[in-house]
């Protein structure tokens, strides 16, 4: 999948991250360049105050890809427990049309 590494940055700073990293793999330093890793921290563990909530559409959208897919743990760094809760929350919110099944917001149909 192409949008694996960049899915998040793409929303924030659009052009900056494009092509970076991925292309680096082809020339010379290849593996070495890619294998550096920053420790990912589960954002929900970092914030003990936060209670997972299916009503918080903003939060869930930051864990969804543009097409509405739930971002996997290996990318978002969410811990297993919170990923499970997040998944339930997103599925509930989908049912209530707070977030979409295809595409995370109201894009895609003409709402005027």
């Amino acid at each position: 999948m192409r949008d694996r590494d960049n899915y998040r940055d793409r929303d924030r700073d659009n052009d900056k991250d494009f092509g970076g990293g991925r292309d680096e793999g082809k020339d010379g330093e290849g593996r070495g360049r890619r294998s550096f890793s920053r420790k990912k921290v589960c954002r929900f563990c970092a914030d003990n105050e936060y209670i997972m909530d299916y009503k918080d559409a903003r939060m869930m959208q930051s864990y969804m890809m543009e097409r509405g897919k739930i971002v996997p743990r290996r990318i978002s760094g969410t811990c297993a427990l919170h990923q499970r809760k997040l998944t339930t929350a997103i599925k509930r919110a989908r049912n209530l049309a707070l977030v979409g099944y295809i595409g995370f917001s109201s894009g895609g149909y003409d709402a005027r």
Partner: peptide, 14 residues
Amino acid sequence: RLAYPIQKETRGVY
């Protein structure tokens, strides 16, 4: 605004 149309409605009162 609903994230997707439900029963042809694009908006809803929650």
